[in-house]
Design a protein around this nucleic acid. Structure first.
Lengths: 342, 342
DNA sequence: TTGAAAGCGCTACCAT
DNA sequence: ATGGTAGCGCTTTCAA
């Protein structure tokens, strides 16, 4: 096996208690002894077992991250940021992908409990009603922070962007350009973020005196998002009075829309404008580059981890809800609508 | 605390040994007792502690994944695939990003040891000479499998694409189109994959009687890759006899090249052709869509995990090296060079 | 078939 | 200042 605290103790001619003390930097030991022990630890290339340490009552220094799909650039960037801040603070990341399957959420939450993660960051939606799935949480006493979305009944804290404001920005941009007939490609209505974006978009439209009929809000439930977005956008673009602009609740759906437009022989933004959400790397490389509502992804990850760590350090009386401001990034997928042929 | 095996035993009126047996499905217990115990476990919502289980000599059912950057779509897709196959087999993933910093490789490898992961998948390059960094491995007896690149001195097994063939394909495509003056944007020469791709590219060129001067191979060391690619490509495109085609060792560099061309007022593929490598989601959305050498990413992740699991199950006598075939995906970033103005 | 008990590597408390 | 020792939750002999 690996070298243990016993090996170090024996080699240094001291008790394991002494070694433990130098590991944790507490207790009383003479400088002489401590240096000797450190030397031995290095010579033996000793690394304390996190497993044993955790069993003995300490943390595992592990945080669990739940996202729908790590290959989705938005979540990849979230993960990156969480990973980075986590490591900065001494924690490593266990990542699980739920694929938006409800049973997986439950399974992974349960898994996190059995693996004794110190805290959980949730970036995935939860379908069923709160109590059922959030149960393991209250059960296990593991602090949970949600990121980029809110979960009903999850009180651990949350870091989100102001989705409502984001939707409103998109609407403002589009109406200012002169659009009147618009549609939105939405994610699951189960997602708080998606609902808020639509609500904000509708509000923004209203401020310009434009209506958004319910029928113009299309839910893209299927997987994968790009293909589903393309499919739904195609339907929209084929319809009688096709919209002059489409607001997509994330960049992936916007890309699908771009593809659909291309396939239909429509030019973007000439024939139809497209606005995305997230501002992932994808938005900057598409054809045309995507106008999108940017989330401060890196900042969100940092804040989520900070909040979580403070939570499990019991510095509790935090404002549990951090709301960051989104920002409209105008690229080349939006323009004034073509003059309508009278 | 959480409910433990003792709680279950007490509640069921049996010894913890009995409970342990039903957990592990071995030993002899009467069907009656076993059912009763299962009932109690469910009622108490009992989940065995992986920590304690591991300390008692079992696995942690955790695998460590080392990548340069999880927000890089290529590695995000690798991670996705590894995560998926891992979970299918009962393992979860600890992901660490090295950012190509050598000291981090060492730190994370050491971290994996102290966290007692059962196995490690490495998708990052290692700079220094083998023995130094790979030491913790031999030391800890943790099986390691490399993916998408090979590490000197790492004998645990590897799953790669035939990078040489990939480079050769790119060259074949470009020379068939009529290109004679080409350049390549390379990743770090420390990466086996990068070296092989260049070697293959050069070989392919040679088959068409075309030379690739050393000066035409530009290393993109800096971060982030897109920006660095753009910078280097700009230099290339500004040079006296600018290449009519650029082969980029990954899609990110290719995107930088696309941006550089755009900024220089050059059309792709009209003025310059661009070939990428990896075929991440990015390649399909760029302007223009990118011709690239596809790696079977999903398959690679699966195979890497399979290999690793078999390794730690001691079904050892495996062919330690799996080589998959790449595939050229022709999109719209390549075309015949413009007729040279005589 | 069942249970008592010895670890696994470490922390923390209590004597010394 | 230093070391002995009782757990932490679980697996695994070994007796009964």
């Amino acid at each position: 096996m690996n070298v243990t605290i016993y090996d170090v103790a024996r080699e240094a001619g001291v008790s394991i208690a002494a070694v433990s003390q130098v590991i944790n930097g507490k207790g009383k030991i003479s400088e002489r002894r401590r240096r000797e022990i450190v030397r031995v630890m290095e010579r033996l290339n000793y690394r304390p077992s996190v497993i044993a340490t955790a069993l003995a009552g300490k943390r595992t220094y592990t945080i669990g991250l739940l996202v729908p799909d790590i290959s989705n650039p938005f979540f990849a960037e979230i993960a990156r940021s969480v990973e980075e801040q986590g490591h900065r603070l001494g924690y490593s990341l266990v990542i699980c992908c739920t694929d938006n399957k409800e049973d997986r959420v439950e399974r992974y939450l349960s898994l996190f409990r059995s693996k004794s993660v110190d805290g959980i960051v949730i970036g995935t939606g939860i379908g069923t009603d709160d109590k059922e799935t959030i149960a393991p949480l209250a059960h296990g006493r593991i602090p949970i922070v949600t990121i980029a979305r809110e979960l009903p009944g999850c009180d651990g804290g949350t870091v989100v962007v102001d989705d409502f404001a984001g939707g409103r920005m998109a609407a403002g941009h589009l109406t200012a350009l002169g659009h009147r007939r618009m549609a939105v490609l939405a994610e699951s209505p189960k997602l708080s973020s998606s609902r808020e974006r639509i609500r904000g978009f509708r509000e923004g439209l209203g401020e310009a005196g434009v209506e958004l009929p319910d029928a113009a809000v299309v839910t893209c439930g299927g997987q994968p998002p790009v293909a589903e977005g393309k499919r739904r956008a195609s339907e929209l673009l084929r319809s009688g009075d096709r919209p002059t602009a489409i607001f997509c609740c994330n960049d992936l759906l916007a890309i699908g829309t771009l593809q659909a437009a291309k396939e239909a022989g429509l030019s973007v933004p000439g024939d139809v404008s497209v606005v995305g959400f997230d501002n992932t790397i994808l938005a900057s490389v598409t054809d045309p580059p995507l106008t999108t509502v940017a989330q401060p992804i890196e900042r969100m990850g940092q804040l989520a981890v900070d909040l979580l760590i403070r939570r499990l350090a019991n510095e509790t009386d935090e404002p549990p809800r951090t709301v960051l401001q989104p920002e409209l990034v105008v690229r080349e997928s939006t323009a004034a609508p073509a003059p309508s042929p009278i």
